[in-house]
């Protein structure tokens, strides 16, 4: 398993291919539906240094706010990524994001942007909310918390050995497409027998 740290250079990304398992270290910014719409429509400058060569995570976490004011993550698994398909390519290009973490894979438009920008789609284990929250070492900051609400806010976190699988790479490869094709062929074989 490869360890990768942010900021991630384009060279590192180009060296990754579908099926690679990685452990991510460094800065991750959480964003889902409202956040993606906001990034595309408003393109705020203050997000640029946060996202540059960093990673976006499609996740609406369960968080705890402690008495001394600091935050921690209780459960933080991936949510289904395809909802961000209309926005993701634009976000990748505007902010030079090197990775998108989520679940279920994304479409052609995102795949093309991964190739153009030099980025990967990184799949997290669905349902592993407790483990993934454990790998969040620090909640650095949160933006737009009041405006968007906790599940939709931009949580800026530091992760340590966050386990991920590259399922879409910067060379047009998609593990989702490969597995779908081979499993469909096998299903047809099975259906042909009684």
């Amino acid at each position: 398993m490869k360890r990768i740290s942010t900021p991630i250079s384009e060279d590192v990304i180009r060296g990754l291919k579908v099926g690679d398992e990685i452990l991510l270290n460094g800065r991750v910014v959480l964003s889902r539906d409202i956040g993606h719409k906001f990034m595309v429509e408003k393109k705020p400058d203050w997000l640029k240094p946060l996202l540059h060569e960093a990673v976006i995570y499609h996740c609406g976490p369960v968080v705890a706010h402690h008495e001394d004011g600091h935050w921690s993550f209780v459960s933080a698994g991936p949510t289904t990524s395809i909802r961000e398909e209309p926005y993701q390519a634009d976000v990748l290009e505007t902010y030079t994001v090197r990775g998108v973490i989520g679940k279920g894979g994304m479409g052609r438009k995102t795949s093309d942007a991964l190739g153009k920008v030099g980025a990967c789609y990184l799949h997290a284990t669905g349902g592993a909310g407790a483990l993934l929250a454990e790998r969040v070492k620090r909640v650095v900051d949160v933006k737009m918390l009041e405006e968007f609400g906790s599940p939709e806010a931009f949580w800026i976190i530091e992760v340590e050995d966050f386990p991920l699988v590259v399922t879409m790479d910067s060379h047009g490869g998609s593990l989702h497409e490969d597995v779908a094709q081979s499993s469909l062929a096998r299903a047809k074989e099975l259906m042909a027998s009684k």
């Binding site: 976490p61 369960v62 459960s75 698994g77 949510t79 909310g129 407790a130 483990l131």
Partner: peptide, 23 residues
């Protein structure tokens, strides 16, 4: 490795009495 991740999650959620999955 993925099934190991799931088993580790099972242990952690039980130990912390925290939700296995945020959904």
């Amino acid at each position: 490795n993925t099934l190991d991740t799931m088993l580790e999650n099972i242990t952690l959620a039980d130990d912390h009495v925290s939700p296995l999955c945020q959904d």
